[in-house]
């Protein structure tokens, strides 16, 4: 197979292994999505409140790639801005969740004993509540805004991070190299900073990344329920929700385009994060011959 590809340059791309091809595609999607949303205000400014009532529910065409919605607004154009909001909320909320989860898990895993048991029972208790419901409760207490959505997502998503950090620390604490460090005269703080945290940080970064798609979906769900951003601001959840009304009139694009954007982008993040996870795992590493 390798010989065939070597002789015929056109076949060379086929030598990409399927896993790598998936990661490359996901990487490209993500680069385009992030660059697009970052540059959108410069390249393709949007007046959030503008409507064009003479151009309602136009099907996708070269003029309007994603068609227009029932207020004549360009769906593709608003989807770019919606994605901008989603990615911002996703990233910031994932970061908030990581900081909270990292702290709680870090304290539980480092101190162990009674502190660990109390903190983990609190985590279990919160985890027993449906987190979308908890998120709705949090936004309901605040005014609808970007900050409220971020708080809602961040405050409900740190539980898994706390568990990951805690269990990682607990297992690291019993490793022989920690004994060796203690035996060499290292104090508690040095063992934590020098030998434990550096091993936990890659896992933590991975957990954050895997959290982003989750947070994006959560934000979309809140917006879809009308609890996210104010309705005139473009967000993918708002758009899907608005477009729902147009579905019966045959304007499928108003809901489908923002829906497809969210699926493709979050899938891309998840594919890349999964590959990263595989690289971190020594067992899989051995199989991949990295």
């Amino acid at each position: 197979m390798a010989d065939l590809a070597a002789r015929r340059p056109l076949l060379r791309p086929l030598r990409l292994r399927p896993r790598r091809a998936g990661a490359v595609t996901a990487g490209l999607v993500l680069v385009v999505a992030v660059a697009g949303t970052l540059l959108a205000p410069i390249l393709w400014p949007l007046d959030q409140s503008a409507v064009a009532l003479d151009q309602t529910r136009l099907a996708p065409s070269w003029g309007h790639l994603g068609g227009t919605d029932d207020l004549g607004r360009d769906v593709a154009h608003r989807a770019v801005y919606g994605l901008r909001v989603s990615l911002l909320v996703g990233a910031v909320a994932a970061l908030v969740a990581t900081v909270i989860g990292g702290l709680i898990g870090g304290i539980a895993g480092t101190l162990g004993g009674r502190v660990d048991r109390v903190l983990m029972r609190i985590v279990d208790t919160i985890a027993a509540l449906p987190h979308l419901l908890l998120g709705i409760f949090i936004v309901a207490m605040l005014r609808p805004s970007l900050g409220a959505v971020i708080a809602s997502v961040g405050l409900t998503h740190w539980l898994s991070t706390a568990r990951i950090v805690r269990s990682e620390l607990l297992s690291l604490r019993t490793r022989t190299f920690v004994d060796a460090a203690i035996s060499g005269g290292a104090g508690r703080r040095r063992v934590l900073v020098r030998h434990l945290l550096p091993h936990v940080l890659p896992r933590l970064a991975l957990a954050t990344t895997l959290m982003i798609p989750h947070a994006v979906w959560h934000e979309t769900a809140l917006s879809f329920l009308g609890l996210g951003l104010p309705p005139h601001l473009a967000s993918l959840g708002n758009m899907i929700s608005d477009g729902e009304g147009s579905l019966l009139t045959g304007a499928w694009w108003a809901s489908l385009v923002p829906g497809a954007v969210i699926v493709v982008v979050t899938l891309a993040i998840a594919v890349l994060a999964a590959r990263w996870r595989d690289r971190l795992d020594p067992r899989v590493r051995a199989e991949l011959h990295l």
Partner: peptide, 13 residues
């Protein structure tokens, strides 16, 4: 007091 452990792999960060 110093220790030399059985498995250097496990004892080395």
């Amino acid at each position: 007091v110093a220790v030399l452990f059985q498995s250097p792999r496990a004892a080395a960060d």
